[in-house]
Design a protein around this nucleic acid. Sequence first.
DNA 1: CTGTTAGCGCTTTCAC
DNA 2: GTGAAAGCGCTAACAG
Lengths: 328, 328
Amino acid sequence: MTRQPTLNDVATAAGVSLATASRVLNGSDRKVSPALHARVLAAARALHYSANAQAQALARRSTALVGLLLHDIADPYFSGIASGVLSAAEPHNLRVVIGNTGADPDAAVAHLAALRGERARAAILVGSRTTDRAAERRLADGIDQFVAAGGRMVCVGQPGLPGDTVIPDNAGGAHALGVYLRDHDRIAVVAGPDRLRTVRDRIAGFRAGLGHPERTLVTAEFSRDGGYRAAAEIPADTTAVFVTSDVMATGLCAGLRERGLRIPEDIAVAGFDDVPVVRDLFPALTTVRLPLAEMGARALELALAEDGPDRVVTVPTELVIRASTRRP
Amino acid sequence: MTRQPTLNDVATAAGVSLATASRVLNGSDRKVSPALHARVLAAARALHYSANAQAQALARRSTALVGLLLHDIADPYFSGIASGVLSAAEPHNLRVVIGNTGADPDAAVAHLAALRGERARAAILVGSRTTDRAAERRLADGIDQFVAAGGRMVCVGQPGLPGDTVIPDNAGGAHALGVYLRDHDRIAVVAGPDRLRTVRDRIAGFRAGLGHPERTLVTAEFSRDGGYRAAAEIPADTTAVFVTSDVMATGLCAGLRERGLRIPEDIAVAGFDDVPVVRDLFPALTTVRLPLAEMGARALELALAEDGPDRVVTVPTELVIRASTRRP
DNA sequence: CTGTTAGCGCTTTCAC
DNA sequence: GTGAAAGCGCTAACAG
């Protein structure tokens, strides 16, 4: 590989000035004669010129980068949102750099710092829930720094952090589910970690809809395996269980089945999120649909919005009834 | 937001020269006295200094960016690989920018051009399969350009393109599956699009293992819905069907079930990839495991390797037998 | 319309 | 050890 051609090379080849070349190749307001215009284009093509984005960013004092920080891209909840972010970024010609934060809020802080160095236009933080007060504080600081450096911040699914927020109507969706399962009297709830506002909202909404408290509450990790392990703690005579996420519900169903429990004959199961695959489970899972891709897209739009007061966008949810809760 | 502090600001605040400040904050070989070192660090901290990555890239003539191009991040096959790429990138302090190419090879070309402008260190292209000869040509050209600009190129799951390649042992895995299903005599194969080398390798391997040709061959789209639609074309007396991807198999199972066929009692089903969720389908899906995350990680390593001749890394596969093919 | 000329913020010789 | 100064490739006034 030889040295990449620069704008200067193109200008020289075309016999015009640097400025002119810049104007036809990148400048917005075109005031270049057709003749020169054509010559520059030809030269650029001939040399396989490709503008150096770094240099442009430096000179323009702005980049086309957006950071997307999420727990785990392999989790369908996150990848669904990511997909929406990517689609929305495309037409704006934005590049999306993605970072797995794992369960660790400090990883998010580190990514945020890197994005700050990158002078990213915005950062979208998806569900980096934490139970650690101090870590939460550090995260908020990291966000403040990012924002102070001129970046826009959007959080998805996690309220209470600086910046804009996109959040599903967790309480409403869970409420509808509670109403739907109201006739069951031996109910269990399998919940993700306590501290998460999302989890609390879903449980509260569910209880309100149910009209009476659940009989059993099991707390588990926010993962497929967490749900699987929780299955062991569900009383055998339970008639319905609400799981605070589909991914957990998937594991729970597997665990329940291993115990010989039939779904929904012996026990009804409902999840939350409507991750794509749950409609293909057998029996298909009743759940509360979140418009994942749309949430991602909304987040990106907020990220592009003019600076302003912190906004909160609530997206509606929808109860999706499937076989897993159908009375025999 | 006020203007971001520059290295100059830090240097001034610390009462040292620009060069010294640069050396302690970013330079590799440290030859700065402890006293100055401390002062610079203190100043940087006080000002919340964050080096401008763009400027650094320009001065150093190198970036820490890697591009990851894939069909659809919401598809578990791709997100599994992406997850591996991200984990591997982390320790190297590389930023990963991700692009959904959809089914469109020209989208990949466009992304590649953008990455070239970004002066990305490398690009990893995952399974951007195409059936269009001309588009394939354009893609190869795009890759050549990217490489000519000094980027390294790695393709995952798709041989025959310039650059390094990570590819699973498709034929071997499918062969093992064929051997396993050898006793079935009324076999159907549900295949993704014809032209894909991946698909052809899997089918060829399967047939070789089977020892006899399948009775029915259905071609479908490489998606859940493609599999679902294919279900309608499977003869009712088929005893086993091999689907060339798990995502398709998921749809196929749903479709088969809707037709009243029981799995595995009436018909055995096997997939390919071992995407996480298929073990939780009911019945759990027999499949050929691909080490998705590892494939992603290997790709990133290749991307970091010194320039050299095009390498091909073949990763082993493993037959995973589950309930979906278990004889009653 | 076109060209000149400062920078953008940082790294890196090259002297001291 | 430390600093001065010359770029890296491009944009954006500012003159013609």
